[in-house]
């Protein structure tokens, strides 16, 4: 399965970026093979509004089914729900560690956003 992780850098050793919409990179990881692709999120990062919406659309196009991140605001959450992507908030550590935790069933999913809307 493909999952997305918000990341500060381009590889699996980078720390998880707590912000989703304004994360520098979004890493799409195949949980079986650990093959990954780092998506440059700078377009969303610099968006005026709706950065999370753009980021959600991007990982949806790449076929991600799950998102591991720190905080997720209400609009991004709504977008991810529409794209049928499950969200796990409050994820920390390195991207690799987050994926391992997910594979080990140690990640629980959120049913609501955990950050304020940005204007």
């Amino acid at each position: 399965m493909k999952i997305a992780v918000s990341s500060t850098g381009k590889d699996l050793d980078s720390p998880v970026e707590p912000r989703f919409g304004r994360a520098p990179y979004l890493i799409i990881v195949d949980t079986d093979t650990l093959e990954f692709e780092a998506l440059d999120n700078s377009a969303s990062m610099n968006a005026f509004k709706g950065a999370g919406i753009q980021a959600a659309a991007m990982i949806s196009r790449k076929g991600a089914r799950v998102l591991l991140t720190g905080y997720c605001g209400p609009k991004a959450f709504e977008a991810l729900e529409a794209a049928k992507i499950k969200v796990a908030n409050n994820v920390t550590g390195k991207v690799k560690e987050a994926v391992t935790a997910f594979n080990g069933g140690l990640i629980s999913f959120s049913d609501r956003p955990n950050a304020e809307a940005h204007w």
Binding site: A47, F48, K49, G50, A51, I53, Q54, A56, A57, S60, K75, E78, A79, L80, A82, A83, K84, I85
Partner: peptide
């Protein structure tokens, strides 16, 4: 340019307040 309408998987979502 305001991210007010977006394609998400099998659906399309307007964010009217944007």
């Amino acid at each position: 340019r305001f991210n007010a309408i977006v394609v998400l998987g099998e659906t399309i979502l307007p964010f009217t307040e944007l």
